[in-house]
Amino acid sequence: MTLARLAVFFVFFLSGFAALVYQVVWQRSLFAIYGINLESVTVIVTAFMLGLGLGSLAGGALSKEPRRPVLLLFAAVEASIGAFGLVSLPLFHRVGEATLSLPPLATAGVTFLLVLAPTLLMGSTLPLLTAHLVRRSGNVGKSVGALYFVNTLGSALASVAAVALLLPRLGQARAVLVAAVVNWVAAAIVGGFAVVERKGAREA
């Protein structure tokens, strides 16, 4: 396995880690604003799912064009998720205070819009990297399996780290900061490899 390939798997592990930290913290934050009854929980979880689904479609559409630099796109996506992470909690609270008196359906819409941008970005990452790996390996199952493995493993680790370490020791705001830093590290690594790879391709 080449170093570049290893780097792709490693950054996707980091990406999965950061995503789950956000999910755990954002859910907690939104529950405090919109309530912890089943209806609120369902709206928030479904909003996450819808965002991921739409993001997957967007990532898939972006990956169709073979000449498009999918690794650079991935780096930009990770950096953007980190940037949103930084402003996420104050944004949730401001919007929450302003929209709390809205009817339930409107509240659901607001919640969806709040998590739409980051989850859309998160959802786009798997198709982008799948396209990158399939172009090199020619095997869909192995590419998806490996990517899904490292990403989900990162998320699994983040689930445990969030409740065993991050939330008890750091609280919500600093846990989100950790996730943002992880996003930027991932962006820097994959961005670096993408630049080197393009340079090599041009020289060849």
């Binding site: 689904g53 997957s56 479609l57 967007a58 990532g59 898939g60 559409a61 990956s63 169709k64 073979p66 999918v70 959802g123 798997l126 198709p127 982008l128 799948t130 396209a131 990158h132 399939v134 172009r135 390996s137 020619g138 095997n139 869909v140 199952g141 192995k142 590419s143 998806v144 399996g145």
Partner: peptide, 20 residues
């Protein structure tokens, strides 16, 4: 995904539909 998607340039796009 493996059995339903052809390994071509559209693999990423098709994967996104399976994922959705």
């Amino acid at each position: 995904s493996h059995f339903g998607i052809r390994p071509d340039d559209r693999a990423g796009a098709r994967l996104s539909y399976v994922y959705v």
